[in-house]
């Protein structure tokens, strides 16, 4: 179900990108909202097919500075200019050439390097200084270890007793807005994006005159851990900033899951989500502002997910 929601928003991004390329201009914020609404509505109809995660919308741009330049390796192409045209039309690894029936060494190593980054994101840990920067304390779910986290999504949805005690001790109860950060499937997503998302989110909340409880970090969290947190802290609305399943194009993509009055037994269609938050996708700063807007609408309409009109 988490994947399903990710998919919805990623679909929005893809649709937007298509529209953008048709228009050849930047879409106004309104268009973003319309597209979100449209796709969420369409996909939440009964019988919508649970589908796959799509996360490549930003694939045209190189990920980080160490990304080698993308040049075709074909020694004597029939049409040299045509080859450049092909390469600019897709982020797919084409024009790579071969030795016999196997890829060239450089191409093979690039693939392995990108896979290593993705695996590191799953098995990595969020840097403590990133959490310290925003004075986030840490609570854990019952995930126990990464292997178990991957095998038992149910255990990542429940906080430890110690975690519950910490929340009761250190957090403001019944806040208007509760912010939660979690590593999820990509610790590096938090490392890469939190410093931009969080300040812009806090600014946005301020501008709407909304008050915010005590933010904290959940280690080994799944999206639905927001339900358990909701039971403990009883916020009006809750937003969870969580690392997405890493891809080869980027291993640092983050999602924001939002919910009105989270509690046990919530269904996925009651959550609103913005995904694909990373430098080449939905920019972290813009995402922070957009999350603020959505949260204020949730408070206004006392609803989230499919019932929320954006």
């Amino acid at each position: 179900m988490e994947q399903q929601l990710d998919f919805l928003v990623d679909k929005v991004v893809a649709e937007l990108q298509k529209k953008l390329s048709e228009l050849g201009e930047k879409a106004p914020a309104q268009a973003v909202e319309q597209a979100v609404e449209k796709v969420v509505e369409a996909s939440m109809q009964p019988g919508a097919q649970p589908s796959v995660e799509v996360n490549g919308a930003a694939a045209f741009q190189s990920d980080v500075s160490e990304e080698p330049e993308r040049t075709a390796q074909i020694p004597n192409p029939q049409w040299k200019e045509g080859l450049d045209e092909l390469l600019t039309s897709t982020p797919a690894r084409i024009g790579v050439w071969r030795t016999g029936v196997r890829p060239l060494t450089k191409t093979m190593l690039q693939l392995r390097r990108d896979h290593a980054a993705a695996v590191d994101a799953v098995y990595g840990e969020v840097r403590q200084e990133v959490l310290d920067q925003f004075s986030l304390f840490t609570v854990e779910t019952q995930y126990d270890n990464t292997e178990n986290y991957l095998k038992r999504p149910d255990m990542g949805r429940i906080l430890t007793d110690e975690g519950v005690r910490l929340l009761q001790e250190r957090c403001q109860k019944k806040p208007q807005v509760q912010i939660v950060v979690s590593d999820g499937l990509s610790a590096s997503a938090v490392d890469a994006n939190l410093k931009d998302v969080l300040p812009s989110l806090l600014d946005s909340l301020k501008s709407y005159g909304l008050s915010c409880g005590t933010p904290f970090f959940v280690k080994g969290g799944r999206v639905a851990s927001m339900d358990h947190i909701g039971e403990v802290l009883e916020p009006e609305v809750l937003v969870m900033l969580i690392g997405e399943r890493p891809g080869l194009v980027t291993a640092h993509s983050m999602s924001a899951y939002m919910c009105y009055r989270p509690r046990k037994g919530m269904v996925e269609s009651e959550r609103t989500v913005i995904s694909n938050i990373h430098r080449q996708g939905t920019s972290p700063v813009e995402a922070g502002a957009h999350i603020g807007t959505i949260l204020s609408k949730m408070l206004e309409q006392k609803a989230s997910g499919v019932k929320l009109v954006l």
Binding site: V52, E53, V54, A59, G100, V101, L111
Partner: peptide, 25 residues
């Protein structure tokens, strides 16, 4: 068959054009 096994839309890895040529060979 996916270019270098990396599906840039579904975000997973499969078998590449090279791989299939190698299975055949």
């Amino acid at each position: 068959g996916v270019a270098m096994a990396d599906d840039v839309m579904l975000n997973y890895q499969s078998t590449s054009f090279h791989d299939i040529a190698a299975f055949r060979e």
